[in-house]
């Protein structure tokens, strides 16, 4: 089972929920931080790092001595990574999306594959669970290529050694968020009930519901803000899987880098139940879940 914890708005508690679930997960687990721009899961799970590797993608390298300036590559490139400027051809490796089209179309053999550093991939163990995270290089604009490399590693890992996967996704509803949820079995949307939280939650629902995957909701800081979230979930038959109460003690525990299941036995129980609810959802029994 691959579970992705996502949200529209940032700061609603994705990492809190992911870290808490990871600490109560009994079966074999791989925890994944796919928020490669601002990964935070390691700050709470404190993994023992085993390997750090550099992730790269393919970009074209131009050999001007072979180039006949036919311009086919520049014409094909949709990302302005190769441009004809008068009698010059210039490459802008930072703009390249790695489609490989220019290398395939060049009739002169003037383009060869080079590499652009995307960032790091860090693997280790957090408690009983395996851990993997990515960290984009400062200044690198494109995150999906690094996320896809991590997802390929995750897929290879579970092919060899089947286990559950728990993914902490980046915020938002555009391409990075879609990249994280697209191959999961269950989506857990974390929101708070403030107007901002609710507004972005609806955006996330709009973005992710076309995938037709089982989706459930965790309401964080419950009791703060408005109740329209409950009406929305009822209307859309979206099960509310858990509600985490608003409590300054939780905010303080978080500020000390603690996983909030350690705050009280009740909170621990809440996440044990949440895990059960997620399994039910995956098994297709989710329609029965209710926030009552």
């Amino acid at each position: 089972m691959i579970v992705t914890v996502a949200s529209g708005k940032g700061g609603t508690g994705k990492t809190t929920v992911t870290a808490s679930l990871a600490t109560i997960w009994q079966s074999k687990l791989l925890t994944v931080d796919l928020d490669v721009e601002e990964p935070n899961l390691h700050l709470f799970l404190h993994p023992e790092i085993e390997t750090t590797s550099t992730a790269e993608m393919e970009i074209p390298v131009l050999d001007l001595s072979k180039c006949s300036l036919c311009g086919k590559c520049a014409e094909l490139c949709q990302f302005k990574a190769i441009t004809m400027m008068g009698k010059f051809l210039m490459t802008f490796p930072d703009m390249c999306h790695g489609c490989g089209g220019c290398l395939a179309i060049c009739p002169d053999g003037a383009l060869s594959p080079g590499r652009r550093e995307l960032g790091e991939i860090i693997r280790g163990r957090a408690g009983k669970a395996d851990f993997i995270m990515g960290r984009i290089r400062i200044g690198e604009a494109m995150t999906p290529p690094l996320m896809n490399i991590i997802k390929d590693e995750v897929a290879a890992t579970i092919r060899e050694n089947p286990m559950d996967v728990l993914i902490d996704a980046p915020p938002g509803v555009s391409c990075p968020a879609v990249t994280s949820v697209i191959d999961s079995d269950v989506i857990v949307l974390v929101t708070d009930s403030t107007p901002f939280g609710f507004h972005d939650f609806v955006l996330a629902w709009e973005a992710f519901s076309p995938f037709g995957k089982p989706m459930g909701v965790v309401i964080n800081r419950a009791g703060l803000g408005a109740s329209e979230i409950y009406r929305f979930c009822a209307d859309k038959s979206l099960p509310v899987l858990a509600e985490i109460p608003y409590d300054r003690a939780i905010a303080e525990a978080y500020s000390k880098g603690q996983v909030i299941t350690t705050v009280s036995e009740n909170l621990r129980e809440l996440f044990v139940t949440l895990k059960q609810q997620i399994e039910n959802l995956a098994a297709g029994a989710g329609q029965e879940a209710d926030h009552a």
């Binding site: 940032g10 700061g11 928020d35 721009e37 601002e38 984009i136 400062i138 200044g139 690198e140 604009a141 494109m142 995150t143 980046p170 915020p171 938002g172 990075p176």
Partner: peptide, 11 residues
């Protein structure tokens, strides 16, 4: 601005 340090923030 947006959260993160990727494409929209750089822009």
């Amino acid at each position: 601005g947006a959260p993160g340090i990727g494409c929209p923030v750089i822009s």
